[in-house]
Design a protein around this nucleic acid. Structure first.
Lengths: 232, 232
DNA sequence: CGTCCATTTGAGGTGGATCAACCCTAGTGG
DNA sequence: CCACTAGGGTTGATCCACCTCAAATGGACG
């Protein structure tokens, strides 16, 4: 199915020659894709389109070019835990194992760069710099997961929302404003809360002038210090 | 402090020659420590002794030989989230970065094998097999963390306890019985619950004959199927 | 300009936390 | 060898943060 979609929608892009070593997060894939012999394929996903399912074979590794992606697990009765949001520049779907541990969906219309896992592995087996980079990327995801376990296991609703806002502010604020790509339900499923609890926490922060809205998903942090204080 | 304790208590052990490639979890360190030039140091920790603190420099990588270890994060007011328990054979404290992301303490008297991180990194930079193994170990921890985020964010108290029992049964049951090294508070801090809630869930499972006790920490699972059903 | 979600807000219920005894058992010292 | 003690575990009563259910409001898009 992915293969078929690739045929109809993909724009194949040969990344030619060497490029400079990674200098920033947004270049983390470049350090890999820049190696000779690695082919990156550009691909688009519509809002809410599945990119891969849980336990599906991990054929590709992805980098968000534009848009946003959610990685999640489901329980049999539909309860969902979003493990991470992937924003432009982020790499996701990287697995040393054979299958994806979480499912991934586009939150909004999203463009991504794909590299075959097999070719990455090949590259890693000859170039220790690539191998090191892959390890570091997985370790970065682990660090995030460890922080998130603390949030899910021990923080209050307000602390969770404060943590979330500071994370998003750091990752996607431009000119002091952030445009959240995800809905309240996604935020709730990321924070282990209901969408109503998220909404109430945001309303409280608004009432305290800690943040400002211009539309439900356009948020300005007016007082990062007070938000930090609310975050345990 | 670690250095000083090393002087007084450590038994330095040169692992000589090559050993067979890893065949089981309990050998996962062997695949690395078996390489020429890698020195493993044996070391002991008393009950509740700190092995390393959060954000301390990651000087060593550890493998549990005997006993049990908890890895955790604290909030400023003392709330604690245990991210993982490490049992004999497990490797912990492995970081590609400069510092430990979680603190580690011995739950009971514990013996561990230590390898310098620097020497491991050196080994990984020349041997792609070692590099691959390090990546796979970090990915294994990530998988556990992802499963645990689902538990912490979305499972009920009974589901959490059921998951915990099945995990411990898999990891440390001998002859159908498990001897838990950790107290109810540790279990609660692992599952994002209070110790009272853990105790009540265990009592309920006991009343339903799903498990048997011989001492609070000696548990026999009498019906794994029903436990699986309770685990979402 | 109307439709459809997403979001907000309100009212009430509840699962797990908190607070408080009590019990059990392993370790200690007489 | 046994009485004593302390820490871990259990159980009960009550509380409350967050969930659930419901309704109103708002904003994006055809």
């Amino acid at each position: 199915m992915l293969t078929q979609t690739l045929k109809t929608q993909a724009i194949k892009t040969q990344i030619g020659g060497k490029i400079a070593p990674a200098r920033s997060v947004s270049e983390q894939f470049g350090a890999i894709a820049g190696h000779a012999g690695l082919v990156a394929t550009e691909f688009s996903y519509r809002k809410d389109e599945e990119i891969y399912g849980e336990d599906e074979p991990a054929e590709y590794v992805y980098q968000v070019v534009s848009g946003a992606v959610r990685s999640y697990k489901l329980l049999s009765d539909g309860r969902r835990q979003i493990g991470a949001f992937h924003l432009p520049g982020d790499v996701f779907g990287l697995e040393p194992g054979q299958t994806h541990r979480l499912a991934a969906e586009a939150i909004i219309a999203t463009g991504a760069r794909l590299v075959e896992r097999a070719s990455l592995e090949r590259s890693a087996s000859t170039d220790v710099q690539v191998a090191r980079k892959l390890w570091a990327m997985t370790a970065g995801e682990l660090r995030h997961a460890e922080d998130h376990m603390l949030l899910l296991g021990r923080k209050t609703a307000m602390e969770r929302v404060a943590t979330f806002l500071l994370e998003m502010d750091r990752r996607l604020a431009v000119a002091g404003m952030m445009a959240l790509p995800m809905c309240r339900r996604d935020i709730g499923d990321y924070l282990g809360l209901t969408l109503e609890t998220v909404s109430r926490a945001l309303s409280q922060l608004h009432a305290k002038r800690i943040l400002g809205f211009s539309g439900a998903r356009q948020i300005v942090l007016r007082n990062r210090q007070r938000l930090h204080n609310l975050d345990a």
